[in-house]
Amino acid sequence: MKWTTFSAVALTLVGLLALAGWGIAGPAENPPAHPEVEGAVTPDACEVCHQEVTPEVHSEWYDSQHGMLAVKCFVCHGSTGEDFTKDPSIDRCVGCHADQVETMAAPFMKDKSCFTCHPAHALMAHLPVAVEGGDK
C-alpha cells in the first residue's frame, strides 16, 4: 500500500487551472498558490519533494545556519494553503530578528528587504564583499 498517493484528479485539475491562469495573466509578482497537497495522505514535509524538485535551494538552506537549526521552509513561506508565499515578507523574520527588522524602517532601506543582503535560503550573515582589483 502506498501512503504517498495524491488524488490524481484533484491535482491534475489544480495543475491545469494554475497553468492556464499563468498563461493568461503572465508571471505574477507573488505567484499563485502552492500546488495542492492538502488532503493527501502523506508523511512528507516540504523537504521530501523539494530535495528533488529544487535540489539547489534545498541544499542552500540545509547547509545554512537556518538549516542546521531546523528553521524549516514554512517558517518563511507559510503553509501550502492560502497563506503560502513564494516571497516571504520580513514579518517572518521578526520572531528571531526583531531588532534587525526594525532597522528596515530607515529611509535608505526603502527599496530593500532582508533578502537584499542575506540571499534567500542560504541567508548568510553578510554577502561576500568583492575586493577591488580581485578576481572579476
Partner: peptide, 15 residues
C-alpha cells in the same frame, strides 16, 4: 507544477 511555480515566481520582487 512546483518547478513551474518557482521559475515564474523568481521574476517577482520580495514584498
Amino acid at each position: 507544477a512546483s518547478a513551474a511555480t518557482s521559475a515564474l515566481a523568481a521574476l517577482g520582487k520580495p514584498t
